[in-house]
Write a protein that binds this DNA or RNA. Structure first.
Lengths: 335, 335
DNA sequence: TTGTAGGCGTTATCAC
DNA sequence: GTGATAACGCCTACAA
């Protein structure tokens, strides 16, 4: 920014015929300033096109009025899964009435964690929301210990300090999905699971396994990575190894869309031959053919809660425990 | 951030037994410091876990080492179109070797332009890349006039000052797509156009119209908004009004996927009954059935160039003219 | 090569 | 209600 022409408090004060202190008071809406003084100052501000220098302000207030939402993910994934859009939407709606600006940090290059930590530690933001983190990221522990208000979108794996987090009950959610498949008579039920370095991957798989075990049925598992590509590959493997598949629980809607495509290409009718249940109830669920039966998680609400917690922590609250929300099975046409 | 325990230059200097100035020199990699002094200082820095306070640094250097990528779009769209992922990927790859941090700003709420402008003017970033802007946004003109290095991802509509921008030749790109449809014998060729408040929408429509006019064929147009939903609605309208459609040029791959779905649901075989050409050559193009014939734009390269230009401008270069790149028709199965 | 000192633009604590 | 004045943490001539 070319600040050379940018007016300062000093200049506004001079023009308005008051002191810097008074201008500062007006800018920050202090109640105890004479209305006429306020008017004079505001006039001068408009006249000069004055804008507070946030670096200077941040230096003394130690607040930046901006919060980060961090996705330690390659951009390709962040930008293809509606899950992120929902999260972000919830967060930004909650932040809107605040003066806080939302800043999105995507992993620039794999393994370049230090850059992220430096940024967060550098005082650019007042707090951070971490979404879609992987357990293999050794960065999680460091994030959790940053002297900065932080909240995770799911219980971070491999972190041994208490942290605030918001998530749904993934085990229970998966259970309802798989139980539905059994309830409609399917017995050869497989799953396209998420990666095992993410809470959502582990827990949804656990829910599936629990139900299958209790029913005395064999588990059939293929792992995806929550991308469409990964879902496609996993479905192909599953189909190859278990041609008799008649039910499929897929750990995310995005992967489920890929599964539907694969099934169709391999001549399987859905739900007649193979019944499919997804997870998320994202916008994708209603654009597929057939429409997707899926486990809904209140993504926007989770995002909103994430933001609320962070704001509270920034305000000084000590919140360091997980919050778990319920899911709901949405029955459409695929199962 | 709880800075209370955070060490300052002063403390590092004390521990290392040198002056603040020397510590500052070491931190900033000044060449003229004795190796042993450097070692002592670096030791102290590690000892204390010192991290420079960027507000203080920004206050004096007037640089923040972070640049913004601004998408004046609702998050739902930004996060569903692979176009953004590609753009971002190109930008971040170019920025990686730099010390700059990428900050993504999404429109928090419709019409809340002032917040964005305040942020940009507030000195949080050294420059900004504006992607996917709409002409109706009266904010464009204000952005263009900000005393901040800025580059647009496309010629901004309704802006009467010269600005730097990077884009493909959308008219020519659309031409090649439509000409291909005619070349394979289609005569009832319609288009699902983009919105007319975006350069890409206007120019791709123009390309279509030019070719049709030159061929003496009637134009059949339905407008989408570059979302899957919009593409679906537009295709439905087109099909309804022109049941004899045998060719379709869709202004983006994302909308084209929706078009393929609609055509299939309405019993049209692609390409036998209706040949379809998209625009982008995003990852979506190869996941559809049939695979999409589409006009490729080098999205990552555009993003990279955008970043290069911005860095140059931040460095003081005066770049205020558009750069136009070529497209290429990628023939697959849909046409 | 290293230290001294002044200032970047704001806020906040005092007096008045 | 308003005005001095001292920080905030860092960089950078200028001196030494």
């Amino acid at each position: 920014m070319d600040w050379s022409g940018s007016p300062t408090l000093e200049q506004v004060a001079a023009l308005a015929g008051v002191s810097r202190a008074t201008v500062s008071r007006v800018v920050n809406g202090s109640p105890k300033v004479l209305p006429e003084t306020v008017a004079a100052v505001e006039h001068a501000i408009r006249e000069l096109g004055y804008v507070p220098n946030r670096a200077a302000r941040a230096l003394v207030t130690r607040r930046t009025d901006s919060i980060a939402i961090v996705a330690p993910e390659p951009d390709s994934r962040v930008f293809s899964d509606p899950f992120f859009a929902g999260m972000l939407s919830g967060v930004s709606k909650t932040l809107a009435p605040t003066s806080s600006q939302l800043v999105l940090l995507i992993e620039p290059a794999a393994g370049d964690d230090q850059r992220l930590l430096r940024y967060l530690r550098g005082g650019h933001v007042d707090g951070a929301i971490i979404i879609s983190h992987h357990g293999r990221d050794n960065v999680l522990q460091e994030l959790a210990q940053l002297p900065l208000p932080i909240v995770f979108s799911a219980r971070p794996l491999g972190v041994d300090v208490p942290v605030a987090s918001v998530d749904v009950d993934n085990v229970a959610g998966a259970r309802t999905g798989v139980e539905h498949l059994l309830a409609i008579g399917r017995r050869h039920v497989g799953t396209v699971a998420g990666p095992l370095d993410m809470t959502a991957g582990i827990d949804r798989l656990t829910g599936y396994q629990d139900v299958m075990r209790e029913a005395g049925l064999p588990a059939m598992i293929a792992y995806g990575d929550f991308t469409a590509d990964g879902g496609e590959q996993a479905t192909l493997r599953l189909l190859d190894e278990h041609p008799d598949l008649d039910g499929l629980f897929v750990a995310s809607d995005l992967m489920a869309t890929a599964a539907l495509r694969v099934l169709s290409q391999h001549g399987r009718r859905v739900p007649a031959d193979v019944a499919v249940v997804g997870f998320d109830d994202s916008v994708l669920a209603t654009t597929t053919t057939p429409k997707l039966t899926t486990v809904r998680q209140p993504v926007e609400q989770l995002g909103a809660r994430l933001a609320e917690i962070l704001l509270a922590k920034i305000g000084g609250a000590q919140l360091t425990s997980p919050e778990i929300y319920d899911t709901e099975l949405i029955i459409r046409d695929s199962a």
